[in-house]
Design a protein around this nucleic acid. Structure first.
Length: 347
DNA sequence: TAGGCCATCTGGTCCT
DNA sequence: AGGACCAGATGGCCTA
């Protein structure tokens, strides 16, 4: 069935003629004129023509009225549809406009969530935004790569880690990742700190006069990897990816020279207090954990398996603020938090 | 100009 | 009945 699309812009006349919907229209985003109800057309009689269903009703009625239901046209079966009165038309349009507004808002919510995801990706740039599909692919790879780091001896500085990150990504995105790898740790941690501190407008490339040392786990230099190496991903022996192709992540394209974002770092998602080396952090964690576990009223084993936010809450209530010292953000993967607790508890 | 990406509208389906 | 979710269609913008 062909949709009876009209031309965008008709809605203005429509709305003004009907004298409603001002509220809905005024609630639209300013930067882009939505094609709201542009597909409601005025027919030759000056009446609204609506979407397929109602359109058919109109046509059906009209056919009967005009005696066009002859031998050529198949007779319509089923109950006779109601006539499209003006009141029904108006109700339909109102319903449609409201549905459109909801749908827009829903998609904005989805995009906001996608933006949040972009911000915790190892390559976040306000100026060079990853597309939706690339964001999802990179997220998938990131999770996979981090899991590999946790479960094996895989180093985040290894080729394998980078290969995992780039697997299935487009060449530009791979370049972006490579560009991030060539940059020392910096902006991402700042962004996170800024967000935590509620600094307005922070979180991007504007910079902030706080120096941040290399975050925990893998030690610098992050930029020691050659982009040309990072982009040679042929012969990767990781998990098979259906989306990967020989061309992806290959070298030969100019390196990304735009604003760079977060350092590639396994701890990139975790805010680690500055001037704490990974070893120090670990010592602190052990110390505090031991303290906490020996003094907390309920069995520490109950912490294992808890979602990170809950563990966080528990520790925030104590004077040790354990996970914070450890550098976990509330959204840190629970296994990162609880596995550490588990390890210490078993010692 | 073609292709990629995106925002929006729309109708269908499912659920409350 | 109305809302959420989804997928198809469409047109705009941008870039190679």
């Amino acid at each position: 069935m062909t949709k009876p699309y009209g031309k965008p812009g008709d809605v203005t006349e429509l709305v003004s003629s009907l004298g409603w919907m001002e509220e809905d229209l005024s609630s639209q985003d300013g930067d882009r004129t939505p094609e709201i109800e542009g597909r409601y057309m005025l027919n030759s009689r000056g009446q609204m023509e609506l979407g397929s269903e109602d359109m058919e009703e109109e046509e059906g009625d009209e056919d009967e009225e005009m005696g066009l239901d002859g031998e050529n046209a198949p007779k319509r079966r089923g109950p006779k549809k109601k006539k499209m009165t003006k009141a029904r038309q108006e109700r339909f349009v109102v319903r449609r406009v409201k549905a459109n507004a909801r749908e827009r808002s829903r998609m904005h919510g989805l995009n906001d969530a996608l933006d949040s995801l972009r911000r915790v990706m190892p390559c976040y740039s306000k100026t060079q935004k990853l597309s939706k599909i690339e964001t999802l692919r990179l997220a998938r790879n990131y999770i996979w790569a981090l899991s590999e780091v946790l479960e094996s001896d895989q180093s985040p500085e290894s080729h394998g880690f980078v290969e995992m990150l780039c697997k299935g990504l487009s060449q530009p995105t791979s370049n972006l990742v490579a560009g991030c790898l060539q940059l020392g740790p910096s902006t991402m941690m700042l962004n996170k700190l800024d967000e935590k501190c509620g600094i307005p407008g922070a979180g991007g490339q504007q910079g902030h006069p706080i120096s941040y040392p290399s975050p925990g786990l893998p030690s610098p230099p992050y930029g020691s990897l050659e982009a040309s190496h990072l982009l040679h991903l042929k012969g990767f022996k990781g998990v098979a990816y259906e989306n990967s192709s020989p061309n992806e992540c290959s070298s030969g394209t100019p390196p990304y020279d735009g604003p760079l974002t977060p350092p590639l770092s396994i701890s990139g998602n975790f805010a680690v207090k500055q001037e704490t080396s990974p070893r120090e952090t670990e010592r602190n964690f052990t110390h505090h954990a031991a303290h906490y576990l020996s003094s907390h009223p309920y069995p520490p084993s109950s912490l294992v398996g808890l979602p990170a936010p809950q563990v966080h809450t528990l520790f925030q209530g104590s004077r040790y603020d354990l996970p914070l010292d450890m550098g976990f953000e509330p959204f840190a993967p629970s296994h990162m938090v609880t596995s550490q607790i588990s390890t210490i508890y078993s010692e």
